[in-house]
């Protein structure tokens, strides 16, 4: 069967193209043609915030999307979606889902907003976001007073706590807003995607590696349709998702490094890498915000505890 899965990728961006060309044929192969996937771009069938409901109703067969969108419906998704300053690499956080307690608490949060009709297949991030900036933000202290575009989730709370002014403008206006200084920096995407959309051209002081975020995604399916699959196909789907995400992580990282290195050599562009001292300060601020968000609901608390527990097991925290 062919399953229609809505993503949070824009049509034609690097990630969609890469997945479509390299990974969609593989799932068909792995299941001997029993599972075929059709990825549709962000917002093409239902608005990004509504995909869990749409999957529950069977309007979509599944979603492959960033979950920050759902943080207004359940605060746990702000923590699951992007635990700012929590993990160092996407691989660690993928591990939280794949080998740790991640999937279990994630499924609970999904059940809360989608009436138990949506099955989580896998979850995790594939990139660290860079922060395109039009003025140099060289240290934690430089954040003070800066206008930073940030949409839903923990990011805006963390920026506010660090002394910046989070501005909520639609993604479609980010380019113009950066170009003309309506904002000083923008919560956007991976370095390679920012380069593709031209953000790095109008924001010559990109912060890379980023200081703030590693947005986490989920692959889900309508529960009834997932249950119809044989256990082998269910397992194949999960394995396929994590293989694809690990591959995407590597490819995007490689591209990011390459482009950042090229840009560093360019006249007029300064790629800023924060000193460890600033990153530590950011982490202190961010952790306070984790706690605040964890108080917003029982599930949010559970999500944070699960993350902290896993961080201890891999030695990120003591």
């Amino acid at each position: 069967d062919t399953y229609t899965i809505q993503t949070s990728f824009n049509a034609g961006d690097f990630s969609t193209t890469y997945l479509t060309e390299n990974w969609l044929p593989k799932i068909k192969e792995m299941t001997d043609g029993r599972v075929e996937i059709n990825l549709t771009p962000s917002g093409s069938v239902v608005p990004s915030k509504e995909t869990p409901q749409a999957v529950a109703m069977g309007v979509l067969d599944g979603d492959w999307t960033s979950v920050n969108y759902f943080s207004g419906q359940e605060p746990a998704f702000a923590i699951l979606g992007d635990l700012i300053s929590g993990y160092d690499t996407p691989a660690q956080m993928l591990g939280f889902c794949k080998d740790g307690p991640g999937e279990k608490v994630w499924q609970k949060a999904l059940d809360a907003i989608a009436d138990g009709e949506v099955q989580l297949v896998g979850c995790g991030p594939y990139s660290r976001e860079a922060l395109p900036a039009r003025v140099p933000i060289k240290t934690f202290e430089d954040l003070k007073g800066k206008k930073i575009r940030s949409p839903e989730g923990l990011a805006s709370a963390v920026f506010a706590a660090a002394g910046a002014s989070p501005v909520s403008i639609p993604f479609s206006e980010v380019y113009g807003a950066l170009e003309k200084g309506i904002v000083d920096a923008a919560d956007a995407s991976a370095y390679v995607n920012n380069a593709a959309t031209g953000l790095n051209d109008v924001a010559p002081y990109p912060l890379y590696p980023g200081i703030h975020s590693m947005p986490s995604m989920e692959l889900t399916m309508n529960k009834a349709k997932f249950d119809e699959l044989s256990p082998e196909d269910q397992k194949a789907l999960r394995d396929w998702f994590y293989m694809a995400m690990e591959d995407l992580t590597n490819v995007v990282h490689e591209q990011d490094e390459k482009l950042a290195a090229e840009d560093t050599r360019k006249e007029g562009v300064e790629v800023i890498d924060w000193p460890q001292e600033s990153r530590d300060k950011m982490r202190v601020v961010a952790r306070k915000e984790w706690e605040k968000f964890a108080e917003k609901s029982d599930l949010a608390k559970e999500a944070l505890d699960a993350n902290l527990e896993y961080m201890k097991t891999i030695g990120l925290m003591n």
Binding site: V45, V46, P47, E50, Q53, M57, V59
Partner: peptide, 10 residues
């Protein structure tokens, strides 16, 4: 119904 409502509200 859900599909219509979601798109219209957006």
């Amino acid at each position: 119904f859900f599909l219509v409502a979601a798109n219209v509200t957006e």
